[in-house]
Computed example of a mutant assay.
Amino acid sequence: MSSAVKTDRSATARSGRLTRPWVPFAYLAPALLLYGLFLLVPLGRAAQFSFFEWDGLGASTFVGLDNYVAIVQDEQLREAFWHALVLIFFYAVLPLIIGLVLAAILTRANVRGMGFFRTIIFLPQVIAMVVVAVIWRQIYAPDGPLNGLLRLVGLDSLTTAWLGDYTWTLPAVGLIGTWVSTGLVTVLLMAGMAKVPRDLYEAARLDGAGAVREFFSITLPSVRGEITVALTLTIVAALKTFDLVYVTTRGGPGTSTTVPSYEVYRRAFELGEVGAAAAVGIVLTIIVFSINAVVNRIGEKK
């Protein structure tokens, strides 16, 4: 009797080991179904459209890779992708540098009212981007506050139509992205720095380390994960920028601020080139995944 019970228990254990890996899948199946239905299926349809010449209404014509070849050959599209890469500096790199300095100083100084400061600096993330764009368009206006301030301090020669100048328009739009992203990056880094054990800093000070050495030897390696998350979020924001460009410049003056997302809109809804717009969207998606895969790969290295 006992041997039969043991045999039955063994069979049950083996059966449990065989079926247990499928239990998490049963829980994840609804989420995976929704993910596929609302993300993968539309992405697949966009990829399908990218192989056709279609105006969105009438009959479509299969053109193979012609829409993708046009992206390489079209100077305006190449310029749009270059502008998106430039915006990565303003949306991701610059906020990361500013955020690291701010977070390190505020964490080290243990400033009073830190909760209020976090709320204020995070506020740009809460405001709708369209509202942000309208506000900054007024700031950058020829008779706006920025030029008014420059005139007030005697720098009249520096005043310009910031959103109408071929040289300064893209940096001006990029600085809006810096203003929006800095708060998010700073809050993320402050949260990471707050988890660093104080004993490490005390030991470093006993060894004669200064503030700069503490930052590079202790603080920076300890917030590697937060830096990776911050870069991922801000790079995606930079590459998919549309509403900011649409409200402030509409890609102008000329094509000096065109970006891929704006080109997708323009080609699909203004020019009626849905297939070409889909191809631009697919290429942009690949670039976003590629850059963030590299960032996460670097962030995972010890």
Rank of each mutant, 00 (worst) to 15 (best):
L32P: 07
V63C: 05
I88F: 09
G225M: 08
A191E: 10
Y27G: 10
V280C: 04
Q138M: 12
S50F: 10
I291H: 04
V247E: 01
S181M: 08
Y35M: 15
A238Y: 01
L102G: 00
L39H: 05
P142A: 11
T178F: 05
V236I: 15
L271P: 06
A191V: 13
A46Q: 13
D66C: 02
A230F: 06
T119K: 04
A211N: 03
Y201R: 02
E226S: 02
L57C: 05
A211C: 00
D243M: 08
V294Q: 12
L271Y: 14
V23H: 05
L34G: 12
G299L: 06
V41I: 15
L170Y: 00
P197I: 11
V41R: 13
E79K: 14
E53D: 14
L18N: 05
P21A: 07
A276G: 10
G154P: 06
R137V: 01
A237Q: 14
H83D: 07
L184E: 04
T255R: 10
F289Q: 12
V288R: 04
G174C: 01
I235A: 04
A161Y: 11
W168C: 04
F242L: 15
L271G: 08
L57W: 15
L146K: 12
G36A: 10
A194M: 07
Y91E: 11
L271W: 13
A70M: 07
P142Q: 12
F49C: 03
V126F: 05
I97G: 10
S10N: 14
Y265H: 12
G58I: 07
G58D: 08
L284H: 00
L57I: 14
W168I: 01
Y166E: 08
T248R: 02
N296V: 07
L244N: 01
E79Y: 14
I139G: 00
L32C: 15
A31E: 09
N147H: 05
R250M: 13
A277N: 11
I120W: 02
G254Y: 04
Q48R: 14
V185A: 00
S217P: 06
L146T: 12
G99W: 01
D66K: 09
L100F: 08
L233V: 14
G192T: 03
S50V: 10
T255S: 14
T285R: 06
A13K: 11
I97T: 09
G174A: 04
T107R: 00
P145T: 09
S50E: 01
A141M: 02
L85G: 12
A204P: 03
I218H: 02
N147G: 09
V93T: 13
D243C: 07
L40D: 06
A128W: 06
A161M: 11
L233R: 10
L28S: 13
I88H: 06
T258F: 15
L87Y: 03
R205N: 11
V131I: 15
L18H: 04
